[in-house]
Each structure stands twice: as structure tokens, then as C-alpha cells.
Amino acid sequence: MIAKVTLQQRYPRLSARAAGARTWVQAIGEQTRFYGATLSSLVFACGRYRGELLRQVAAMSLGTGALAVIGGTVAVVAFLTMSTGGLIAAQGYNQFSQVGVEALTGFGSAFLNPRVITPDTAAIALAATVGAGATAQLGAMRINEEIDALEVMGIRAIAYLASTRVAAGVIVVIPLYCVALVLAFLAARFGTTAFYGQSTGVYDHYFNTFLIPGDVLRSFVVTIAVAAVVMLIHTYYGFNAHGGPAGVGEAVGRATRTSLVSSAFTILLVTMALYGQTGNFDFAG
């Protein structure tokens, strides 16, 4: 009697690839479902869980415990943006001086900070501090069965844990980005005028000439979109963590990696949608 040979036995490599693709599609579907449930519960969470929302805003901005000693996310964003602003002063002045136009360092700060550098810096700071913290918190609650306890008590876990954190992240990022942008501008100006000896009048002239107020407002739109994406990704990985403490650490690493890559694509797409192909830039004056 001849035994029947299944497709999996005949084509093992093809079957393994198909199973991997099916698992990947299922994971994408689960993430999409979670993101939809989180976004649709934002209004409910802001209305019913205002106390938790305010607590998350305070924890994300000033920090809790040991993080509060250095000022929480505010201090982290401040140090990062001051570093990038100083980098613009150092690299911009040196690069422009090679072609004899070092006076345009103010233009580099006015053009690059709101369009590219500061939104990227804010995304990295959010993913490394607020996002990673949210993943660790939710992951610890998941492995300790606290999320299951909330659902048993009749509390909408996604709205209470995920939606409040996403809303808090979007709320916190607005004043944080104001601090980041101001410090980036000041650091670039201080580095150019104090360390490289450029006249403050020359720097301010080119900075004020090429700084477009609309770019500053559009950069807020980019940063808010990035904050929403980062918080959605981190809450998903924390909410669905498994495997004990090691699984929580793995979830934090995966969430950080995914959020950094996704934030780069978000900045690219939103920037192209806002500025178009030309960038709405006229080099004159």
C-alpha cells in the first residue's frame, strides 16, 4: 500500500516559508486591531480615566522615582537637542567655511532644525525614555496578571492602559518639542558665535531671513504624528509581552527597534506630505 506524501513533506522549505509569511501576516493583523482599538478608545479614556491620564502626563514629563532627580524626559530632550544644535554649529560652520560662505551657518540652523534634526531627536528621546518605560510597565503588568485582573473587574484594559498613555504622549510632546526647538536654536547660535567667533549680527541676519514660521508649525505636526506612532508601538509590545522578565526585556528591545524605524518612515512620509517634492524653499536674500 502506497503512503500518501503531503505537500509539507514534499516541499519542506516552501512550507516553512509559507508558515513564516502566514505568521507575519497574522502579527500585522493583530497589531492593526490593537492600534484601531486604542485610537477608537481615546475619547472614552480621556473622559472616564482622567486621573490615570493626568498621572501619565506627570510621569512622562517630569519622571518618577530616580528619573525625577534629573528632570525626567524634559532633561533628556534638552541635553539631546543641545548636542544636535552644537553639532550644527561645528559641522555647519566648518563645511560652509570650506566654500567661503560660513556666514550661512544661521541658515543651516533655521532650515535643518525644524525640518529634520529636532523631530528626529524628539523621536529618539521619546522612544528611549517614555516609550521604553511604557513597554516595561505594561509588560510587568502582563506577566503579573494585573491586566487580566483589570479586565475581570470590568475595566477596559486597552482604554485604561494603552489609550491613556498614547494621549499622554501626544500631550507631553508639545511642550517638550517647544523646549527642544528653542534649545537647538540657542545651542547652534551659541556655538557659532562663542566658539567660532562669528558676529551675532551676521548669524541673526541669516537665521531670521531663512527661518520660515510655517516650518516651525509644520514641524509640530510631524512631531505629534511621530509621538502617536511611538506610543502605539510601545504600548502594543508591552500589552502583549510574555515569557516572564526576560520576555519583558525582549519586548522593550523589539518595541524600541520598531518605533525608531517606524518614526523615520513617519517623518519621511509626513514631511513629504507637508512640503511636497520641492520643499517650498527659495534660497534668496
Rank of each mutant, 00 (worst) to 15 (best):
T223F: 06
R165Q: 11
A157G: 01
L14G: 15
S262E: 07
T235G: 09
V216K: 00
R17H: 12
A187Y: 07
L232R: 01
Y236A: 06
R33Q: 15
Y203Q: 07
T278I: 05
L80A: 14
A225C: 15
V226E: 06
M153L: 13
V252C: 08
L268R: 02
F195P: 05
A89N: 05
T135M: 06
R142G: 09
Q8S: 14
S263D: 12
A225P: 00
V43G: 04
T118E: 05
L7T: 15
T200S: 11
T258E: 09
H205Y: 14
R50K: 15
A149M: 07
A241I: 02
I70E: 12
V222A: 03
Y93P: 00
M231Y: 01
V152Y: 03
G47Q: 10
V166M: 03
A66V: 14
L268M: 14
A45Y: 00
A16C: 00
R10Q: 15
I171E: 10
G253L: 04
F281W: 12
I233C: 00
N144L: 11
V43T: 13
A58Y: 05
V76W: 08
S109H: 12
T64W: 08
A16D: 13
R55N: 13
F44W: 08
N94H: 14
W24S: 12
S109D: 11
S163G: 06
G247I: 02
I155C: 07
T121G: 08
V248C: 01
Y203I: 05
A273F: 10
Q91N: 13
L150E: 02
C46T: 14
A228T: 09
A19C: 03
I267P: 01
A132N: 01
V270N: 02
V101Y: 08
N280Q: 15
A103T: 12
G20Y: 09
L67G: 02
V252T: 11
V116G: 01
A127L: 00
V5S: 02
I28F: 10
I174K: 05
G20N: 15
V101A: 15
R115I: 10
L150C: 00
S15K: 07
A132W: 00
A58V: 07
V179S: 02
G285W: 06
A21Q: 12
T38N: 02
F44Q: 12
L274K: 05
G244F: 04
V99G: 09
A103D: 13
A89Y: 07
A187W: 06
R218V: 05
A157V: 02
D282M: 13
C178T: 15
F210K: 01
Q95F: 13
Y203H: 09
F79P: 01
A180M: 02
A228E: 03
I267T: 07
Q9T: 14
